[in-house]
Design a protein around this nucleic acid. Sequence first.
DNA 1: GAGCACTGC
Length: 725
Amino acid sequence: MAAQKSAPARVSNGQTNGMKRKRQDGPKQNNPLQNKKIKLLESRKKLPIWSRQQDIKAALEKNDVLVLSGETGSGKSTQLPQFLLESKWCSKCVAVTQPRRVAAISLARRVAEEMGTPLGKSSPASKVGYSVRFDDSTSPSTRIKYLTEGMLLQEMLRDSAMSQYSCVVVDEVHERSVNVDLILGFLKGLVKGINKKRKTPLKVVVMSATADVAGIARFFDEPMPSDKASGTDGDEEDDLNEAKINGDAPKRPVASPKPVSTCHVEGRQYPVKLSYLDRPTDDVLQTAFERIFKIHCKEPMPGDILVFLTGQETIQSLQKLIEEYAVNLTADYPKLLVLPLFAALPQHAQQRIFQSAPPNTRKVILSTNIAETSVTVPGVRFVVDTGKAKIKQFRNRLALDSLLIKPISRSSADQRKGRAGREAPGQCYRLYTQEGYNSLEKNATPEILRCDLSAAVLTMKARGVPDPLSFPFLTPPPRDAMEKALLQLLQLSALAEDGSISVTGKAIARLPLTPTLGRVILSSARSDPPCLRETIDIVACLSVENIFVNVETEETREQAADARGQLYRRSGDHMTLLAAVQAYAAENSDRKAWAERHLISHRAMQSVMDVRKQLRAQCLQAKLLPSGSSFSDGDDEGVSSADEELTERILKAFLSGFANNIARLCPDGSYKTFVGNQTVSIHPSSVLFGRKVEALVYNEFVYTNKAYARGVSAIQLKWLEDLFT
DNA sequence: GAGCACTGC
């Protein structure tokens, strides 16, 4: 397995192995696409899912919904969509959703090869395409379309009946992203006939590695929450397993058809030996350190070690420990190469995990959760699992995100273990006890129970769900969290007093932003005079990863301060980001070199420019600019940095979305939030760090070691009077 | 004095 360099994002989780049958369409023996297809067919036939082809087709002939569980290596993501194309009911397109962009792109590439068709928009004859943000590669002849969950939700804004699809395949459901939960709820409504616009039934396949198949099947089987009150449908959960397709033909009463089939496909994994600690450790880093050297000194080469840790800080301190000790290893042992892996690491450093180590060297990859799902590290035969991860949890009473170290779930632990058996039999060392494992939660808390629901609720409203409180959730969020989100949308004027979506709300829902940032965009267009262009630049920065690269040493810190000094603005982070975007955009010769000189992430800046372009196009389309005006590429140097009036206009636009994110300076020198009167500190990454100003607006309120405001600017209290009158 | 992982016509 190798790195996919195609996508603008991180690394790949590409599926390999896979192939397909089928006659050749043409007699051309020298067609390279056809030759490749024939070659790939042999490996496809060896996939565990291959032999289940007829079962799967039969299940969907009979029922509208199939829930399929299949572990790593079963071939489900590549093969199942191809199986469906041959079914009579499948006259239109098959959509396959993925949580990540790289996965959508690499799966589409693979399946196009297997089918012997060109990829996406490269040819009008292409049968396989993909659609991810900033990159739509489909053609009118596309029959299988891999797309991110977010893209499918966006498509549903225009066409809630999903009339271009015969089937929607929802993959990786066990990851339980918010988007997947929303998609499942909408699909349930469609399957239950809520949307009458469809002429033919929509087929739905839900695929998952580990998730509770019976639970998801039951979800589709149960009546809609709104039907429950009226009792229009019976509840016959107990009969569910009758519809299993790997046994006898499903018996089902004619009067109340069971719409759900289930199916399990084995994975293809090498065995992984497990070991636990006898007693819990109180110093997990020390224990990991010892384990790594035991493996290294005892186990034969080859075989790299993958260690799961919680964050950048622990990764770097363990790296230091290992490197210091490894110097003393005698020449009898292979060398050790320590490679950190976390999302904030620059791309070139991440790519090092894909390069083979020098001769007689063992790689030790120290990774966050990124290696659990998003990145497949090749060559790993040993996994060391600390059993912990950092989890973000939204506390809606305080409107505060906490990022805390928590025990992982059993399914996460099993996923981590599986990383040792991708290429050969392996071994997994859990740095906790067997009892510890047994006491873990079975599954991780779904994101929908841990996040700010305002975006999800707005999405529902914009797609015609009148009452989000009765939306069919796989796991319904607490009522007070839903109500808080409704209130927040009301404050943003995204909802009218009666709870219906407003014109403003509809406009916000179309923007690829959180509702608060969307509201800011609209306000900036309406301010007098408008400051939309500048606000887009700032919002684009706030919606991507940090553009300023982290500096670790005293030296680089000073270097960073020097390099970035000319970009810093006294008013705070918002205007500083604007200065950075404008300076970057005005740089016409070598933007990459400019970014490096200023210790700014070029990758992040490229995303900013993509988002900016997208937002500009959408604002033009939504006619947010006065008629006759437009954006042009040459207008980036326009803003004078000392323009206090402009600063005020921009920050007031931000206050319209962030009225709850204000803190004021107290006599004791601390900042307290307006809402909730919580003590909050300016995050050390802010240009306002260490400064005292009368009041602040902040982009994010995050609890890590203490409560921090991130993305901070100084405001005047008197601005608030204008704002709320 | 500090940054789990993703995503958006």
